[in-house]
């Protein structure tokens, strides 16, 4: 399935914004973040390789979610938020001014902690909403909806109720609808901010399955508080920690089995074994 931009407003004048399709690697370099002048994240450098699942773990308030939101320029929506550093999507710095915020976000999708389907739209329209927003036309909408919902593991449950409102689904279904919605624009990276924390164990399992299924096509970065989940779904793991009155930093990052099996830092070891946090 190919997406074609029909509206010239979507093309950026100077540089072609979207180099290629398919999963893309993401590299953050020396990322710092402030809220109202207070430094909350300092010098975070992390590579999130193409077609892998990267889990960001760490106790509450250590800057994981802030970091995640920096990766697709959602951070700047918060009044008083500032940042420094760079984030490269397959070598293109998303903060360098070549990509607009809207283009960046279309390439780097996001799923939120709380399911947030658009309540005024049907399930069908919810899936297509990203395309509608970007004025992208697609040859076969029904097929795209089916493919997206299938990837998100929701198709069988909703195929006969496409015209119902998104809000009529259960919480777990809503979250999978949000994943389908994010996948429908064919993002190259998908960011997930504790996508399962508001859900029951069954729904959580479904979503973990979905993550495993889509990891080939899209690079996944997931924030989670659940150690087992991080272990189950991720290939790479980064442990964030903020000491008292200090900004959050990455303590250790590496392949998941290393982080959980033989971490080099004592604090990582303590955290992944549930001794604090």
């Amino acid at each position: 399935m190919t997406l074609t931009a029909t509206n010239d407003r979507n093309t950026v004048s100077d540089v072609q914004p979207t180099p290629g399709t398919g999963a893309a690697g993401l590299v953050a370099r020396e990322v710092c973040a402030w809220f109202s002048g207070r430094l909350v994240l300092e010098g975070v450098t992390l590579a999130m390789p193409r077609s892998t699942v990267t889990a960001l773990i760490g106790p509450s308030g250590c800057g994981k979610s802030t970091f995640l939101r920096i990766l697709n320029r959602m951070h700047e929506l918060v009044p008083g938020a500032q940042l420094a550093g760079s984030v490269e999507l397959d070598g293109t710095d998303i903060y360098a001014g070549r990509l607009r915020a809207t283009d960046t976000r279309r390439n780097i999708g996001m799923v939120f902690q709380k399911p947030n389907p658009f309540p005024a739209m049907s399930i069908y329209d919810n899936v297509l909403s990203g395309l509608k927003f970007s004025r992208i036309s697609v040859s076969d909408r029904d097929a795209l909806v089916e493919v997206s919902l299938t990837k998100a593991g929701l198709w069988n449950e909703v195929k006969n109720r496409m015209r119902e409102l998104g809000g009529a689904l259960s919480g777990g279904q809503q979250q999978r609808l949000c994943i389908a919605r994010a996948l429908a624009v064919e993002p190259r990276v998908l960011l997930m901010d504790e996508p399962c924390s508001a859900l029951d164990p069954t729904s959580t399992a479904r979503i973990e399955q979905t993550i495993a299924d889509i990891a080939d096509e899209v690079t996944v970065v997931i924030v989670t508080h659940n150690m087992q989940q991080a272990q189950r779904v991720s290939d790479v793991c980064a442990f964030f920690l903020a000491a008292e009155n200090e900004p959050g930093r990455i303590i250790e990052a590496g392949p998941t089995d290393v982080i959980f099996g033989s971490p080099t830092d004592e604090r990582t070891s303590d955290y992944v074994h549930g001794r604090f946090g």
């Binding site: 590299v27 450098t45 790479v236 303590i251 990052a253």
Partner: peptide, 13 residues
Amino acid sequence: MAIATETVGPGRA
């Protein structure tokens, strides 16, 4: 898999 991890000390500029 090369993972770049660089922590920045508080004493930096």
